[in-house]
């Protein structure tokens, strides 16, 4: 087996009394997509910032593409591209000017420096907006331009920090398609997310972190198997009941036919959420995001009366 392209051992970081990373280990194989899944404050962004050489760890080691982030940050930067939580583009420049600037700073060969910006604008559907200042862009357009800037340099490792937070479902789907294309070309992707569905859609392997440590990892299927598949949530005067289902029409119909229509106040078919994963793994809800995760539970079928 070849050397992992990202290798993290015992990573520690704290701010005063607050421990953010508490001995985090992480391996990412070349060409893999690994999702760091966890609630706010779990240490996802801190991990990403250390790997992108933006932040120095207090302890432990981390190498990216064979280079130590502490001793050889320049070589690490040559191998990665970072897309952070905020669209890191210049508001006053046009989309095209932003990409031209980044192309130059990425040290692309002269011919690619000329041709790549226009092609990436096209790939992300920004050709019509190319000559407009970025401050006139919508949130989704800014995120796409940001990702386009990250892809200019053809990085070996693409680091995405909550790439689709705040995007509408369609933009999210579009972004996923681009990430899949990048992966198909051989790029390694490390992404952080609060959405189990996103990890499920993109990742070969999911690493669940909480309080700065890895608490579980595996393929999305393995993780969800531990949580249980979809369930039918039934609200009656007596309370809320969860009935597990494989999600098929036959199975849901069987469960619904067993219910007494006069007692049921509302019902819906739900898929497991980050909250469910946390509940199963830790025996407690992912407190910081409990409210949000509840909102994100994807109602597949719904009827309320």
């Amino acid at each position: 087996m070849t050397e992992p392209i990202i290798a993290v051992r015992g990573l520690r970081k704290s701010y005063g009394d607050l421990t953010v990373l508490d001995g985090l280990d992480l391996d990412v194989e070349r060409g893999q997509v690994v999702a760091l899944l966890g609630p706010n404050g779990a240490g996802k962004t801190t991990t990403v910032r250390i790997l992108a050489t933006l932040l120095a760890a207090d302890g432990g080691t981390a190498t990216v593409a064979g280079h130590d982030v502490r001793t050889d940050p320049g070589a690490v930067r040559a191998a990665i591209s970072l897309t952070g939580q905020y669209a890191a583009v210049d508001d006053l420049l046009t989309g095209e000017e932003n990409l031209r600037l980044m192309a130059r700073l990425s040290h692309l060969p002269a011919d690619e420096r000329r041709t790549r910006p226009a092609r990436l604008l096209e790939l992300f559907g920004l050709t019509d907006a190319a000559r407009r200042p970025v401050k006139t862009y919508s949130g989704g357009m800014r995120r796409r331009l940001d990702l386009a800037a990250s892809l200019l340099s053809r990085p070996q490792v693409l680091v995405l920090d909550e790439p689709t937070t705040g995007l509408d479902p369609r933009s999210r789907g579009d972004l996923w398609d681009v990430i899949r294309a990048v992966v198909a070309a051989g790029t390694t992707v490390l992404l952080t997310t609060q959405y189990l569905e996103e990890a499920d859609q993109l990742a070969d392997r999911v690493v669940v972190i909480d309080h700065g440590r890895v608490i579980a990892q595996g393929t999305p299927a393995q993780l969800k198997a531990g949580v249980g598949a979809a369930y039918v949530e039934v609200v009656t005067a007596a309370g809320t009941e969860r009935i597990e289902t494989d999600g098929s029409l036959d199975d849901v119909a069987r469960i619904l036919s067993g219910l007494d229509a006069r007692e049921v106040e509302s019902w819906q078919v739900r898929t497991p959420t980050l909250d469910d994963v946390f509940l199963t793994l830790t025996g407690r809800p992912a407190d910081e995001t409990a409210d949000r995760a509840a909102d994100d539970a994807t109602p597949v079928l719904q009827e309320t009366r």
């Binding site: 320049g74 070589a75 930067r77 040559a78 191998a79 600037l101 130059r104 700073l105 990425s106 040290h107 692309l108 790549r116 092609r119 990436l120 790939l123 892809l151 340099s153 053809r154 990085p155 070996q156 294309a181 990048v182 198909a184 070309a185 051989g186 790029t187 390694t188």
Partner: peptide
């Protein structure tokens, strides 16, 4: 087609970077 194959960038900072900025 747009080439997305990973490459290794030359890492040395240059005067051209500063001029671009």
């Amino acid at each position: 087609a747009l080439d997305l194959t990973p490459r290794v960038a030359s890492s040395g900072p240059t005067t051209s970077d500063t001029l671009a900025l």
